[in-house]
């Protein structure tokens, strides 16, 4: 086994993992504010990619205009989703909310198929596609964009949650919704905020990954699933733990494919995750807590 091969596996894994992480954080933010596992999260990733294509190819907007437009429209979609589907729910039990988001994801995917067709499309990379060599391994400029944007977004998140009033309020909701309500936090508004933030983040993830993976109306399914896994490995944290979860998943897949068996690569990743969960049922980064009765 050669060093440059392993380096390539690691680099490939890290860049896929960064995407999982970004999608995973979207899951966590909503989960923390509302207790919902939002199965429609992957569809916002798709919307980001498809809308960029739509503005770029059909409306002929230049790329630096198309991207903000795509993020804006996806965010509005997230906002509408919360207003029309989540808020009116009479009995918001967790399982009912899960089904609502599943229904929502089918609906959004169906609309995208109807509007933009079933074809896969390619998007141009942000800054060329000349490979960059790093000690025997190669990556594309787009990979640097992915890593860079992921870092920036996590930094912004950190700032928002720890240094702004509304971010702190959202953390309070995550900790105890009723108590947050009692001290005067508008919990419903925080729920809306959480949907806005995570749909925007999903869209960003979709946009930066699109030049590598291509876009289609059904691209959100697999990416959403992987992002969900990343969030759970990270203990549903909206910070660094989920990032580690995503990177771990990406690297495990890549190493599994390269060193053991490409057919079983997803299985290998999942078996390792299951074993980790069995050893630490409270999550990889969670502390054992006493059960509340």
């Amino acid at each position: 086994m050669q060093f440059d091969q392993v380096l390539q596996y690691a680099l490939s894994g890290l860049s896929t993992g960064a995407i999982y992480a970004l999608i995973g954080i979207g899951f966590s933010i909503i989960y923390n504010a509302t207790g919902i596992i939002n199965f429609a999260q992957g569809e916002f990733v798709m919307l980001g990619g498809m809308l960029t294509l739509f503005f770029l190819e059909l409306l002929k907007v230049p790329i630096w205009g198309a991207i903000p437009c795509a993020i804006a429209v996806s965010t509005v979609a997230g906002l509408l989703f919360e207003r029309l589907a989540i808020r009116p729910l009479r009995q918001p039990t967790p399982i009912n909310l899960v089904i609502i988001t599943i229904g929502g994801s089918i609906l959004i995917r169906g609309l995208a198929m109807l509007l933009w067709g079933k074809d896969t499309h390619a998007l141009p990379p942000f800054s060329g596609d000349e490979p960059i060599a790093i000690g025997g391994a190669t990556i594309l400029p787009q990979h640097l964009w992915i890593l860079g944007i992921t870092i920036v977004i996590i930094a912004i998140n950190k700032f928002y949650f720890y240094h702004t009033i509304s971010g702190k309020a959202m953390r309070a909701c995550a900790y105890n919704r009723r108590a947050a309500g009692l001290v005067g936090i508008d919990v419903r508004r925080m729920v809306l905020f959480s949907f806005i933030i995570s749909s925007a983040m999903g869209a960003v993830a979709g946009i930066i990954v699109a030049p590598l993976t291509m876009v289609a109306y059904d691209m959100g399914v697999m990416l959403g699933l992987k992002g969900f896994c990343a969030a759970i490995i990270g203990g549903m944290s909206s910070g660094i733990a989920t990032v580690v979860g995503g990177l771990l998943l990406g690297v495990l897949e890549s190493l599994g494919a390269g060193l053991i068996s490409s057919g079983y690569k997803d299985a290998i990743a999942f078996i390792i995750l299951l074993l980790l969960l069995f050893l630490r049922p409270q999550g990889l980064f969670g502390k054992p807590e006493s059960e509340r009765v």
């Binding site: 039990t93 229904g103 089918i106 609906l107 995917r109 169906g110 609309l111 198929m113 109807l114």
Partner: peptide
């Protein structure tokens, strides 16, 4: 026809909204 998937998704949501039990 092509609208079936949209109706299916919408029905799921409507049913949970109006028949949460």
């Amino acid at each position: 026809h092509d609208y079936d998937i949209i109706i299916y998704g919408a029905l799921l949501m409507v049913m949970v909204m109006f028949m949460p039990g």
